[in-house]
Design a protein around this nucleic acid. Structure first.
Lengths: 180, 180
DNA sequence: ATTGATTTTCAAATTATATTGAAACTTTAA
DNA sequence: TTAAAGTTTCAATATAATTTGAAAATCAAT
């Protein structure tokens, strides 16, 4: 398993980006590699292609499974396990978002709610609570909104995004219609 | 400068989250601290509140300035510099998004375009390029869309987000109107 | 220009994170 | 049941990121 220059570049880039998306370099590379491989890959093939240890691959796969980003494939008559991305590019992106929401946004919302609910002990705290309320509202709006978007069919989503700046026109339109 | 338990909790939490948002723990804490402080803080106050070295604060401030997240305030008759968040919570969130787009999405789009444009050298590469095209399209759609949203007035944005589930109704509406 | 207050820099030390590889474990075919 | 093929685990190691603090640089008032 040896990658052409072009493919290697892509995989390395995924490594760099991987850390931004919530996992480490190696795991980013693994996702990149799996995504551009038409055939499912065995752990050994992954280790060879990325020049990392077998144990590292095993841990990476485990992590990716916890994110639901890979699926295991069994080939009849072959004892090895093969791995593939779990869904389309869109599915994968969605899963990453969803998982990050669970790991990052939700705990933050909980902390903010807990902090805001109990009365301020000082002017300092009162101001802090106002700010926390702002953050809370922002996070909640964004969360709800993204949940709504996920509920739309891909076609509806396409339509909506293609509306682009004319979204504002539609909003105005809606206002007028509702007033009647 | 000593924080109450509640405020300290919040600041520590910002530290945990900080790394998810593109900077390190200390810098996350600094943002948290500045956001809940009504008054601008001096570097020494920050160092004391977070129990970190003066040098660390200096580097953190520099980093936050490169993200445009803090502004410097000069108090007449005082030689120290004081720091405050650069805008509302909403402004800050926007700046983080914008900056991450520049640092992460844009370079990825460039790499993908470069890879896709030159002809595939093998079947392997052909498949990889199809996948890269998918990623490219997704990133581009999301980027354009978020640029559109940023162009809307805060009120329009509010309206749009509050539409919630009725977004799909608006889309349907638009379809019908266009057909006429 | 000098001084003292303040900020910045950066090499060294510390801390945190990722990786290896050998041993333990699991699985399956004979 | 055994043994070979495969996978996982985790202590030790290697690598990377963060933090400190003392020295250098900057700044502003005299």
């Amino acid at each position: 398993m040896i990658l052409s220059q072009k493919l290697e570049n892509f995989v390395l880039h995924c490594g760099e980006m991987g850390s931004r998306w919530g996992f480490n370099r190696t795991i980013g590379q693994m996702v990149g590699l799996l995504v551009i491989s038409e055939q499912p890959l065995s752990a050994n093939e992954i280790a060879e292609a990325l020049r990392i240890s077998r144990g590292n691959v095993s841990m990476g796969i485990k992590e990716l499974q916890s994110w639901q980003l890979v699926k295991v494939i069994h080939v009849p008559g072959d004892r090895k396990e093969y791995y593939s991305p779990n869904g389309s590019i869109w599915d994968l992106a969605n899963k990453v978002f969803e998982e990050r929401r669970k790991r990052e946004i939700d705990p933050t919302l909980t902390l903010l709610r807990d902090s805001i609910i109990e009365p301020a002990q000082s002017n300092e705290e009162a101001y802090a609570q106002e700010q926390m309320q702002q953050i809370h509202d922002l996070l909640e709006t964004v969360t709800k909104w993204s949940a709504e978007l996920q509920r739309l069919s891909p076609e509806q989503l396409q339509t909506l995004m293609k509306l682009g700046s004319s979204v504002s026109k539609v909003i105005d339109l809606k206002d007028k219609l509702l007033k009647k």
